[in-house]
Nucleic acid binder design. Structure first.
Lengths: 347, 347
DNA sequence: GTGAAAGCGCTAACAG
DNA sequence: CTGTTAGCGCTTTCAC
């Protein structure tokens, strides 16, 4: 029943194998009558073309890979990877591509990753989550001749295609929002410089201050490492400088910072205002509703698939980049919803 | 360079195609010398067997599918699915199987799911996350002739293989723990009866009470729907009955319940003790550290892969079931860490 | 518009 | 131990 071949269908429909193939692949040069007759047989028999055979003959697998290097494993702990996967899966469903998932669970796994992903005849293209600086998998993938789209800006961003969140702009808006609210002594808990995410968000902070004629004080920039603990410690380091507001480069770090602020007996946003980045669900669930930057992660994934499929079809070696914009979500932690303590800057 | 075929390697090594095939597949009947010579050529040339061709000839794709029906989409919002995926991916890496991910993003997607998953020549077997009662995908998958392993006990659990958490036992232990602490008036916020998870955990609650000669009062069993809001409302309904303790069938519902308890001006665990289930990270991050049941989700995934691969190899139609045990994590919300208000039951 | 024929690159009997 | 020979089920020229 499942073991029907093109040949069988052809026989039952009284045509040749090639004709059935044309019908299935929706190709021209088949008369209406024959087409209908063949479809009838196909539907009646429940015939399904064999993927392996098709793949071998056409040199196309209609399968793409989503590759997650080990250096981004920590992203499994927040909703980033799940949302990304949902976006990618949805887009694959729409385009009728099969999704292969490659996750390096350990450093050792990662070594075998490239051979597995690049196996001849397996994938038509790959989506690679950009990892930390120096991640070996990235360079190898770039050098392969498979169509490739990065999710997130890779360090080496020349001659590659990628989709990314506008981290710079998001941070810029977050800090500008604080400035408009009247805060002047604005610190940041930056992410690690090992990722472009950390770099871009920090740059947004810096430029926002500059564009508003505020000086960028090195004492107000402390690096967290995108963890709750990192945020806590960074905030502890920041507190003696008495910042009026702080921009945390991730919600998780913001939550750590909030803990530190409260431990010091200070109130949010009255004593210190805070804005995060990511808009995790927890941002709205913690004791103080967190003002933050929302990013379209699922769309990041679906866009990557669309770019990749276009590359596969056009065989284009052109390198595109798409930057998705973010959205400022104003809640309570920035102090916008209360009386201003400081003189607001008028536009 | 990538386009080498077996034939090419054979020629360079001065042997026949079959010999190279034997070497690659680690089959016997090849002399040491020849074997070495062939490996040398393979390594030098970077030859990779073509997956599609191998698949077609051997009728094996060395790829398995992880299928997530739409009815479990909500599990993406907590760490369940990510952990499951990690476990599955890790096990696939070890066995050198490719992992195909099939996630139905919508009801419409779900209709096209079965044809996509069951395409001839695509998968050697599938792992299916058990969904709600009546999920159409489950029945169709069971009827297909693909090797199949469920993650989570399906409703129709005859003649199928599955791996599951010991939900019954976990709930039983959670409630027994409360009983040992001296509580007598113990309520439960049960999950939905649409899932076996909800059913099994509720049953564990009931049996624990019975085994300790406590009556099961219908007023003490309120159904949440595994959401924070559901937990909140269930607790509101429960409060008038003045329970001393409550077992929530999930941490998310426990968090909702905690909110309701506090809204009523009551203290945890002094006025009401609470135990959850799942051990989400948030269980340890909220204001009151939640006593809960930890479950090995990642191992659930890797075990499923192991079972499936065994079925594929042995072609066995035997149906196995593996139940993984849980662990009681005692924190503050159950009151174990403070003076007991009620007379503790001695063993 | 349709069919015949030649592969796609590999595995797996079957001889030797 | 090794090579020869058929396929696996489909796509894709190329004739007609």
């Amino acid at each position: 029943m499942q073991n029907l071949t093109l040949e069988d269908v052809a026989e039952r429909a009284g045509v040749s194998r090639s004709t059935v193939s044309r019908v299935i692949n929706d190709q021209p040069n088949v008369s209406e009558g024959v087409r209908d007759r063949v479809w009838k047989v196909i539907n009646e028999t429940g015939y399904q073309p064999n993927v392996a055979a098709r793949s071998l003959a056409s040199q196309r697998s209609y399968m793409i890979g989503l590759v997650l290097p080990h250096s981004v494993s920590y992203l499994f702990t927040d909703p980033y990877i799940p949302h990304l996967i949902q976006g990618v899966a949805q887009s694959c469903n729409q385009s009728d591509y099969t999704l292969g998932l490659f996750h390096a669970s350990s450093k050792e796994d990662e070594k075998k990753m490239y051979p597995r992903v690049s196996r001849a005849g397996l994938l038509d293209g790959v989506i690679l989550q950009a990892g930390h600086h120096g991640d070996p998998l990235m360079d190898r993938m770039i050098d392969s001749d498979l169509p490739l789209v990065f999710v997130g800006r890779p360090f080496q961003d020349e001659n590659v295609s990628y989709v990314d969140i506008d981290n710079y702009d998001g941070a810029y808006n977050a800090v500008s929002h604080l400035i408009k609210l009247g805060y002047r002594r604005i610190a940041t808990i930056a992410g690690t410089e090992l990722s472009t995410v950390g770099i871009d968000r920090k740059q947004g902070y810096i430029e926002a201050l500059r564009d508003n004629d505020l000086t960028v004080d090195e004492d107000w920039v402390v690096e967290g490492d995108f963890t709750e603990m990192g945020g806590y410690q960074a905030m502890e380091a920041l507190l003696p400088n008495r910042p009026q507001a702080v921009f945390a480069a991730s919600d998780i770090m913001a939550i750590g910072a909030i803990r530190a602020i409260r431990n010091a007996g200070l109130e949010i946003p009255d004593d210190v205002a805070i804005v995060g980045f990511d808009d995790l669900p927890v941002a709205n669930m913690s004791n103080i509703a967190l003002t933050t930057i929302r990013q379209p992660i699922s769309r990041l994934g679906s866009t990557a698939v669309e770019m990749l499929i276009e590359m596969i079809h056009n065989g284009s070696k052109l390198h595109n980049r798409i930057i998705l914009s973010t959205e400022l979500i104003v809640r309570d932690s920035c102090g916008a919803n209360q009386e201003l303590k400081y003189e607001a800057k008028e536009e």
